[in-house]
Design a protein around this nucleic acid. Sequence first.
DNA 1: TTGACACCATACTAGTGAGTATGGTAATAT
DNA 2: ATATTACCATACTCACTAGTATGGTGTCAA
Lengths: 200, 200
Amino acid sequence: MKKTQVSGSPVHMSQTLRQCAFDLFVEHGFDNVNLDQIAAAAGVTKGSLYWHYKNKQELILASCQHYYQTWHANIQKLLAPLSNPHERLKKTIAYSVDSCVIDKRNRVFTTAIFTLMQENDAVRDSWAQFYSTVREFYIGLLYAVKHAESSTSMDHVRRDVDLMLEAMEGLKIRAGFEKQMVDQSERLVISESLLSIFKG
Amino acid sequence: MKKTQVSGSPVHMSQTLRQCAFDLFVEHGFDNVNLDQIAAAAGVTKGSLYWHYKNKQELILASCQHYYQTWHANIQKLLAPLSNPHERLKKTIAYSVDSCVIDKRNRVFTTAIFTLMQENDAVRDSWAQFYSTVREFYIGLLYAVKHAESSTSMDHVRRDVDLMLEAMEGLKIRAGFEKQMVDQSERLVISESLLSIFKG
DNA sequence: TTGACACCATACTAGTGAGTATGGTAATAT
DNA sequence: ATATTACCATACTCACTAGTATGGTGTCAA
């Protein structure tokens, strides 16, 4: 059967597949999406999907990479216009809270990762590495704040960051079953709570 | 085929099935356990399983109930010998931290719940109700502490409890991919961090 | 021109697992 | 004695899906 090449440069088909896989995964979770759906979304069939990825796990790992890259890109874009260290920290936390509370796709994807992590070493390692970069990023933000304040108590910055990140993950989960958290004022209070961790 | 009635009183078969389902779920997750395995573990076949439970979802919900009841029972047993409010709070937090960090079965089960929650209303409602009781329980512990200290600042007790519970959930997830958290001293520090939330 | 290769479609295998249909047995009731 | 019911086993159906086998087409190099 003839097929007009419609999907742009064929070099990017693996990227297209990764994007489509991600879009379906964040909507329905890994187990509820099959490879035919992903291929169809990309405008091809399973046969060609298997030319680009050797199995479903590779696609899942690729969609993880997509998630990580998107996160970094969003943060960069968000902080680009800000130079004040305290503003940068505050903005980052506010953005993360919004992602956890409002963005259902984010919730679906990460919870799916957490479940898969329990039995899949590759996924676990992948997420551990991402978490590590996020932690270092927050530590950098905090160092900048402390330095601007000429503060010397850098003691438990690392532990505080871990505590805050843990609280964010828990927040994400709680937002999954308590719906009254969506209003703006509530989210502001939550951001304040998380910020207060560093005031102790 | 003759079958000698070996499994005790047949009245308790639904309980046996629930227990076996739970034991398999915490080990492999919901999707990696099929009904034949559960029935086999209980010493029966799928036919009789379907006499006690009308589908897999009912078994999952039943295993959730088992989880909730076990949690309450463990806490009761833990706090029975303690009367000092501060001791009771500290002990409860320490126990919860241990459950999150050490008990892999606990991690597997709850993360599976969180994923399922995103698409399953019944599971979500079930967990939301459990979370509510846990929160009220912690609030009760804190009220007792504040009362013993003749403190009047009951202001953000509720918010602090939520923050701490969120941090615990996040801790559980992080313990799933960072293994250096298992040693006793590290867990003590974590407990202290969580307790410090109430000192602010 | 021809062969090689990148890329894609079609059609299939094979395994799995939820749910059902049906029949058997032991106890209890009438 | 017989009918009913609670409980369980056997044996299926049916849908779904990861992965494979195979062949086609366009492009590019030699």
